[in-house]
Design a protein around this nucleic acid. Sequence first.
DNA 1: CTGATCTACAACCATTTGGTTGTAGAATAC
DNA 2: GTATTCTACAACCAAATGGTTGTAGATCAG
Lengths: 105, 105
Amino acid sequence: MSEAELDRLFQALADPTRRDIVRRVTVGEYSVSGLAALYAMSFAAVQKHVAVLERASLVAKQKRGREQMVRGNHEGLQKARRLLDEYEAIWRQRAERIADILAEG
Amino acid sequence: MSEAELDRLFQALADPTRRDIVRRVTVGEYSVSGLAALYAMSFAAVQKHVAVLERASLVAKQKRGREQMVRGNHEGLQKARRLLDEYEAIWRQRAERIADILAEG
DNA sequence: CTGATCTACAACCATTTGGTTGTAGAATAC
DNA sequence: GTATTCTACAACCAAATGGTTGTAGATCAG
């Protein structure tokens, strides 16, 4: 899990429109224009958001006819979760260490 | 959990220096200058990174003499984790739904 | 008191980001 | 065939980001 990969991941999640896209395409399948219809911004803007999510492995595109179907990609989410789990583990170790010190003292 | 809060959270995590600071201050306690000594950038730059983490509730500062001690703040991490867990749940529901459809068909 | 250290904050700069419009290429509809 | 739809991508713009230097206020050491 490279630093650049994590940068892209968290950067991608740091925008409400992109988080909404992630939610939606996890439940159902949308074309890029189908997504664009949902937001008060241009098609090109949504297209860029999808591209950001794609680079972060949070979403994948698949051509179907003239449409580009966007579906959720679990890979990115798992990587982000793994990092937060790691932080959580470090936190718990610290809590245990403190408990030990208190027990000894 | 407001959208702006999540923006600040993921934005804060989208930088390798800031992620490193989060790791370090979770394990031990550092002053701002103590942290600054670790990175190849100015004191002011590190100070800004700490400020970003503070606004995201990933870190808290506490004055001790003339130093400002930085410690990890679990609150922010938990909120980020909660969102990813939610996404995970949506994903699992979808997987089950697909399994059901396959079982029926 | 004087000097050193730690912090806060402003001003500035280059790059990235999130949006726009416009143009052009594929695939579908008629 | 022509017209429409969906997409890709470039060029542009304002605002945010990540860095710098410089100045100034607190606190500690001698």
